[in-house]
C-alpha cells in the first residue's frame, strides 16, 4: 500500500497516441502483461473509494500514464459544485498524477439530487457564466487546467442563444481550460439536431484542443417514428465518425486519442484493434502535416 501522496512510475504526460478507456473487466488483462497501449483513461468516480480497486489503479499507474475523466462533477449546475465531490477528485489527482483531467459540458445535480446522466445545458449567457465559474473553481483547487468535453445531446432549449461550439470555445478562452473534442458526440448531436459537424469543428480553436474521444453509438427509432442517435459507447466507431476524426486531425493535428467502450464491453483485443485504426490515422496525419510544412 502506498502511503505517499503520489506514485512512483511512468511519466505522467499523455502522448499524442491512441489510448484506451480502462474498464473493470480488463483490469487483470492490463495488470498481467505489456499491452503496448501508450496510455489509459479511467473514470474518476470509480476510484473515489479505497481498497483493492484503488490498489489496482495504483498498479496500472506504475506502468502507464493515466488520464482522469470525471463524469459527475456537474460543472453546469446552478446550485454550485459539491465540495465533497471536488475534494475526492483533488485527492485522486494528487495520488495518481494524471497527465490529463477532464470533465463534461453538462449538469447532473439539482436540489441535492444526482441524476446519473450528462444532462443538457441551455446555451445561454447565464449557463456560460456558471460553467466558467465552476471550471475556474476546479482548476484553482487542482492547480492545473482541465479539459472540457462536448456532450451528446438529444434536445435543445428554446431560449439557447449560443451555438455549442462557440459556447465551448468561450469557456476555453475565459478560463484557460482545454477542449476534449469528442467526435462521436459531435456526430450524434449534429445528426439529432441538424447541425453541420464540419462547421462545428471549424468553430473550435485549434490551440485549445487537448484530446479526442472516439466511440460507437446506437441508432434508435422513437415511438413517433423519429430516428435518434444515442451515444451508448456499445459498438465500434462508425465510418462517419472515423471520417470526422480525419477531418479533425487535418484541422488540429495529432492529439491524444481515446477509444471508449462502456456497454457490452468486448474482449480487450477488440479495443486494441480500434486503437490501431486510430493510430493509423494519427500516423497519416503526421505525414500529411510534415509534407505541408
Amino acid at each position: 500500500m502506498l502511503d505517499s501522496n503520489h506514485i512512483e512510475g511512468q511519466a505522467s504526460s499523455i502522448p499524442a497516441a491512441a489510448g484506451i478507456g480502462l474498464r473493470f473487466p480488463h483490469h487483470q488483462c492490463v495488470l498481467q502483461g505489456r499491452t503496448g497501449v501508450p496510455w489509459f483513461e479511467v473514470h474518476a468516480e470509480n476510484y473515489f473509494g479505497g481498497g483493492s480497486v484503488r490498489r489496482t489503479l495504483e498498479a496500472v499507474r506504475r506502468n502507464y500514464p493515466l488520464s482522469l475523466h470525471g463524469v459527475g462533477l456537474s460543472l453546469g449546475s446552478a446550485d454550485g459544485l459539491d465540495p465533497a465531490h471536488l475534494g475526492r477528485l483533488a485527492e485522486l489527482v494528487q495520488l495518481i498524477e494524471p497527465g490529463l483531467v477532464s470533465e463534461h459540458l453538462s449538469w447532473s445535480v439539482s436540489g441535492g439530487q444526482y441524476f446519473a446522466d450528462l444532462l443538457p445545458l441551455p446555451m445561454t449567457e447565464e449557463a456560460l457564466d456558471v460553467v466558467c465559474r465552476h471550471v475556474q473553481q476546479t482548476q484553482e483547487l487542482l492547480k492545473r487546467p482541465i479539459l472540457l468535453e462536448n456532450p451528446s445531446t438529444y434536445l435543445q432549449f428554446a431560449h439557447s442563444t449560443i451555438p455549442e461550439a462557440q459556447f465551448l470555445s468561450a469557456v476555453a478562452q475565459r478560463t484557460g481550460c482545454g477542449i476534449l473534442c469528442d467526435l462521436n458526440n459531435i456526430f450524434v448531436s449534429a445528426c439529432n439536431h441538424g447541425w453541420d459537424p464540419l462547421s462545428y469543428l471549424d468553430a473550435l480553436p485549434a490551440s485549445a484542443i487537448g484530446e479526442f474521444h472516439l466511440a460507437g453509438h446506437a441508432v434508435c427509432t422513437l415511438d413517433d417514428a423519429r430516428v435518434v442517435r444515442i451515444d451508448n459507447h456499445g459498438s465500434p466507431v462508425s465510418a462517419p465518425v472515423w471520417a470526422l476524426y480525419e477531418q479533425a486531425l487535418q484541422r488540429f493535428g495529432a492529439r491524444p486519442t481515446l477509444i471508449e467502450w462502456d456497454t457490452d464491453i468486448p474482449a480487450f483485443e477488440v479495443l486494441l484493434e480500434q486503437a490501431a485504426q486510430a493510430t493509423d490515422r494519427l500516423h497519416a496525419s503526421r505525414r500529411a502535416h510534415a509534407c505541408a510544412a
Binding site: F115, A116, D117, L119, P120, Y154, L155, Q156, F157, A158, S160, N192, H193, L222, R226, V228, I230
Partner: peptide, 19 residues
C-alpha cells in the same frame, strides 16, 4: 416552455435509471 425541439427526455431518463 423549456424545450425547443426536444427528441424526448425519455432518453435521459433511461440512461439515468439504467445506470
Amino acid at each position: 416552455e423549456l424545450a425547443l425541439d426536444g427528441l424526448t427526455v425519455g432518453i435521459y431518463r433511461n440512461t439515468c435509471f439504467s445506470t
